[in-house]
Write a protein that binds this DNA or RNA. Structure first.
Lengths: 285, 285
DNA sequence: ATTGGGATATTAGGAATTCTGATATGCTGC
DNA sequence: GCAGCATATCAGAATTCCTAATATCCCAAT
């Protein structure tokens, strides 16, 4: 008797292997955590191999798990493409897309809405994280592609747009004196480009400053900007309408290149199409 | 929410499309006929297309069904090959193999047993039919490959062995006089090569004969041979041990070439391997 | 036309599978 | 050692799927 795998188990497995967490997977696949645990167990039973190492802190794919991930993705790719091509209802499948929070605010709605309107059967998982983090996730194949920024593009990079970084505050004008001799800044985490760009600019201009807040929570930054406690750096496109750009009063910030980074797995039709969509749309947003 | 097909439905569908019968499919997939009917209905529901035309006499794939068959086979091929490669338990998958009844008796046991011993996870459906019929089934892709015979091999044919046709009776000697002036023959159906070869030989030798029995049931032929009611023509290798070869008394019969005929779909790993197996083993049986 | 046989369709009930919700257990870092 | 987070387990519920019986349909032979 011929055993055939349940593709839903494979989807769960792929999701788990990527997110490295059964409970996170449960949320994504709309099941309970116990269901996910049992699904993986069933899969391991059928394949007669352990796919994950479990621990109190999460899961890690075993050697067999890593190997099977490749096959699982191949099967699903084959399935989804068959469905895409057979039912002329547009693309079919899933992808995970990484994007920094500010770009998500600036471009996310248009990008995702317009894509969803054409390809209603594509399941997109959005992962918000700063560029450095996204690079790592892409490299580790935990996401298929990401919108990332670069300050020093290489030859190979296809820059889709130049984003302007701007200083932002809650009043239209900035009186440096008000803050005494050091200007309080609220920035993203210290390993981000925004952060470094802001510090560099301040250093070069010789302005005293202190970091009063450093976090990747864009919501947090906006809150602080609104409160007037500190001056922030934002991608221009992501500046909320009730805040003011203060570039007149402060040193010029560099432009940042925006580009798409792909994981080096064989790209599925869904990933390719979504990437093309970004390439087409992003420059004109 | 992402819909994923149940691969078991696909297996059933492929089987149905090939056998053109839901009830025959039911036997193959070890379910009841109603289960098969419902499986196909579920599949049609998910795909929102009718896959078969139904009638009192069976089913016929619709245009959409024909199209989907290609995708279904592709998905299953991808799945089975993944399983084959991942679990190092030999090949994995299914194939349908056509073979004339006499070759099935002569070579079937060794061929199938030796293959099964190595590749225990391959599901082989054997279709017994005379060569002309098999050619048609192969052409229509209802079976993946077939062992067939030819009396006039072309350049392209790879003849794996030469089979000798022999006259067979229930006694070691043949006294033509016993039968009066016309020898009664029991042969395969009139469109088979055995039949034609026997008649040709008789005609050329100028012996009077009549066809007292013509059927593709090899069992029937054997029964008649045992009864002594008529003389039969068999593939030498398929002659049961209790019967006698009468070539000494009757005109010489031609040799027949045995070869493998493949349907022209893209061959799956399973089909390729099985074909190679035949090629390796058949000449030495 | 009528009818018989072979084929698919339709039910209802039951079997098997799979999920949920609650809870147990186990790490990890403090 | 404990808090907090993550996975494992279990029983019952929900769902899915199959079986068995039977209805219905079509074709062909009478």
């Amino acid at each position: 008797m011929l055993q055939t795998l349940d593709l839903r188990l494979l989807r769960t497995f792929v999701c788990a292997a990527r997110s490295r967490s059964l409970s996170a997977t449960a949320i994504q696949v709309l099941r309970t955590q116990s269901a996910v645990t049992m699904q993986i167990q069933r899969l391991e039973e059928v394949l007669e191999q352990k796919l994950f190492h479990r621990s109190g802190s999460g899961i890690r794919a075993t050697e067999a798990g890593e190997r099977f991930l490749i096959y699982a993705e191949r099967i699903l790719k084959s399935h989804d493409e068959a469905i895409s091509e057979f039912t002329n209802k547009g693309l079919y499948g899933s992808l995970s897309f990484g994007c920094p929070e500010d770009y998500l605010i600036a471009f996310g709605p248009s990008l995702l809405q317009s894509f969803g309107a054409i390809h209603s059967a594509v399941d997109i998982t959005v992962v918000a994280a700063p560029t450095v983090e996204l690079r790592r996730l892409v490299q580790q194949r935990q996401i298929d592609l990401a919108l990332i920024s670069t300050s020093h593009p290489t030859e190979a990079d296809e820059i889709l747009r130049q984003e302007k970084l701007v200083w932002v505050g809650n009043k239209p004008k900035l009186a440096l004196e008000e803050y005494g001799d050091t200007l309080p800044l609220a920035l993203s985490a210290s390993n981000t480009m925004d952060h470094k760009a802001a510090c560099d600019a301040m250093d070069r201009a010789g302005i005293n400053y202190r970091i009063s807040f450093a976090s990747n929570s864009l919501g947090g930054l906006i809150a602080i900007a609104r409160s007037g406690l500190a001056v922030c750096v934002f991608t221009q496109k992501a500046v909320p309408p009730d805040l003011y750009i203060l570039d007149r009063y402060l040193p010029r910030l560099p432009h940042i290149g925006v580009l798409v980074d792909y994981s080096d797995t064989e790209r599925s039709a869904v990933v390719k199409t979504f990437g093309e969509h970004i390439r087409n749309l992003l420059p004109s947003l």
